[in-house]
Every structure is written in C-alpha cells, then in structure tokens.
C-alpha cells in the first residue's frame, strides 16, 4: 500500500520527494552515533521484514509499516534506517520503485520522525498508562500521516482525489489499528524495562 512503484508519480512530485528525503537524511545521519548504530540497524531490519507480513483487508492485502515505533525509539535516526530498508525492499522484492525512492522515503520517514518528536516530548517514565496511550497514538498516527502523504503524492500526480482517498484510506484502517496496538504494547514494555532507551539522543 505505501510503496509507490515507478511510473506512477510525476516529475515535480519525484523532485519534491528527493529534496525532502535528502534534507531529512542529512539531519538523520547526524543522529547516527556509534553507540546507537546497533539499535538503528536492528530496527531497520525489522522495518525491512515488516512489509512482508500481510493482513488480508477486503479485496487487497496490506502490510505493517512500523514507522511510528521506529521514530519513537530512534528519533531522527529513523530516517536513514527507513531509507536503507526501502532501498533493499525495492532491489530484492520489487516493492516500490528505485526512481521514486525519495517519495516513498518521505512518505514513511517524515511521519516516523514526527511521531518520534511527539512521543519523546510527551512520555513520562513514571506514567506507564500515558506512555502506552501515547505509543498507540504515535503508531496509529504515523500510519495515518503516511496514508495522507501517499494520497497527496498520487493526487499531485493527477489522480482523482476521491478514488485514491477511498482506496488508500480504506485499506489503511486495519493497519492503523494493528500498529496502534503493537506500538502501545512495545513502547509500554520498553518504558518499563529499559526507559533510558527512549531518553537518549
């Protein structure tokens, strides 16, 4: 759902995606310290594999994105992690095109970074319930934002808004629900057993 193949979006959208991705990549690379590198690599691998888990949703099938939890745990470093994983998905599985890599990275990476900023600003170590709720909001919210950005990329390329919105949003709802639950559980656990993970960087 979230991976746009080559030949769908127009040149202005491609350029916008590439420029935005380059900017976020530059900022993300600065957050890549040697100490945090193993964590970035592990979550990048999780993201790479998550797209292979399929949930049946009506006529089509959808897959997890997991960009909310990546942002919450990695912060800015989520962007390079997502970009590397997307590149490999395109090369190995034909998921999304190579030319539109910038657009796809923007659609999934920017919500990740934003979800991370929100989560890190609002979570509290001594308030597990609040942390879990915040995790749900970030997990679901990041998918929702990805969906909106995906729809906008398609509409900006001359697709009819209503058709795109219907198809894309309908298939995204189950993903949002699953990711909200998953992110809440995972971040709730991390906040309990290893809170320093969510504080540094």
């Amino acid at each position: 759902m979230a991976h746009i193949p080559d030949g769908v979006v127009t040149v202005p959208v491609l350029v916008a995606g590439a420029v935005a991705s380059a900017g976020f990549l530059g900022l993300g690379l600065r957050a890549l310290t040697p100490e945090r590198m193993p964590r970035v690599a592990v979550l990048s691998a999780v993201f790479f594999v998550a797209s292979l888990i399929h949930l049946p949703a009506g006529p089509a099938s959808v897959h997890l994105i997991l960009n909310g939890i990546m942002g919450a745990v990695l912060g800015w470093a989520a962007f390079p992690a997502i970009l590397v994983a997307l590149l490999l998905q395109a090369v190995l599985f034909g998921f999304g095109g190579l030319v539109v890599l910038g657009v796809n990275a923007m659609n999934m990476g920017v919500p990740a970074v934003l979800a991370g900023l929100v989560f890190r600003a609002l979570w509290r170590r001594d308030r597990p319930r609040r942390t879990a709720l915040l995790g749900a909001a970030c997990g679901g919210g990041a998918v929702a934002l990805t969906t909106v950005m995906l729809s906008l990329s398609l509409v900006a390329s001359g697709r009819e808004f209503l058709t795109v919105a219907q198809l894309v949003v309908l298939t995204a709802v189950p993903v949002m629900v699953v990711e909200a639950a998953f992110t809440a559980a995972a971040l709730g656990l991390v906040a309990r057993v290893k809170p320093e993970m969510l504080e540094e960087g």
């Binding site: 890549l32 590198m37 970035v40 690599a41 990048s44 790479f48 292979l52 590397v84 998905q89 190995l92």
Partner: peptide
Amino acid sequence: EERTRFSDIMAGIGTIFGVFGIFAWIAA
C-alpha cells in the same frame, strides 16, 4: 517469480547490518 524467497530476506537483513556496520566503523 514473485515469491519472496527466504534467501532474499536474509540477504536484505545481512546487507542492512553490513551497511550500518560500515557507518559505525567510519564514525568510530
């Protein structure tokens, strides 16, 4: 032809760790 093969998945994961390993090496 479109089947995702286990070897592809492992190749991808290995490459990701390799790429970030090189990053870590340069950064260190």
